[in-house]
């Protein structure tokens, strides 16, 4: 299964590197939204809850772009049929797609988080970075699991552009609450983390629940 997932992931990353359809669009969207907030809020800097909310809502909205495109090549070029004809564990497709989305999110955040620090954040970002990295990683795992599941669900529907945000965003509410609550104290001037362990456990629990749900139901999503 891991070998099959590796083959699918390698194929997906090669296609993304050549087409540049997902990650550049997600990144451009995120930076543009930060610029819009910069002017729309008419403030030079944000901190605390507001900064955390802007950071996370923008990242989650950007993820919709990646999730919408995650199964595009399979849907448009018959990749799912080819996979169903092969003697492979279909769960490998979920693992590969979730891993691809996780990597897309990491690349996005490499640009988006420094851009957020420059355009909007008042307090020094560097001081919050170690804790913020842990929150980002845990949130990305959950986002990747839910995103791959929703993308597979929407892939065979006609209104997939509508279904992805309608399904994905409500499912991400617990993740948003956990990530934003954990991040807010880090983005206050001179503030230290508050209840970070509790928030990380919440995010980890969310990741675990959705990974297990996805592994349990993914096979059925590919059924006729």
């Amino acid at each position: 299964m891991i070998r099959t997932a590796g083959a699918i992931l390698r194929k997906d990353l090669t296609i993304e590197l050549r087409t540049k359809e997902s990650v550049p669009a997600m990144t451009l969207f995120t930076v543009t939204v930060y610029v819009l907030f910069h002017f729309g809020l008419d403030r030079d800097s944000l901190d605390g809850e507001l900064a955390s909310g802007v950071l996370w809502v923008t990242l989650l909205l950007a993820s919709v772009i990646g999730v919408s495109r995650l199964f595009a090549a399979e849907r448009e070029q018959g990749g799912i049929d080819a996979l169903l004809l092969a003697p492979v564990d279909r769960t490998a497709l979920f693992v590969a797609k979730a891993a691809a989305l996780f990597l897309y999110l990491l690349v996005l955040e490499l640009v988006a988080v420094p851009a957020f620090g420059l355009l909007l954040l008042g307090p020094d970002l560097l001081a919050a970075l170690p804790e913020l990295l842990a929150i980002l990683l845990l949130a990305d795992v959950g986002l990747a699991a839910v995103g791959a599941l929703v993308s597979a669900l929407a892939a065979e529907t006609r209104a997939r552009e509508l279904i992805v945000p309608l399904l994905l965003l409500p499912l991400l509410v617990p993740l948003l609450i956990g990530a934003a609550s954990a991040t807010a104290p880090l983005l206050r001037a001179g503030a230290a983390p508050e209840d970070l362990g509790r928030h990380l456990v919440l995010l980890g629990g969310y990741d675990l629940v959705f990974l297990l749900i996805a592994l349990a139901v993914f096979d059925f999503l590919l059924e006729d």
């Binding site: 090669t14 050549r18 070029q77 018959g78 049929d81 996979l83 003697p87």
Partner: peptide, 23 residues
């Protein structure tokens, strides 16, 4: 079938290598 089940952005060799890994 009517659909070749090949990825347009991959080369022929890459497409077949991918299929070989699956099978």
């Amino acid at each position: 079938g009517h659909d070749p089940l090949l990825y347009r952005e991959l080369s022929g060799r890459e497409n077949l290598a991918y299929q070989a890994r699956l099978h």
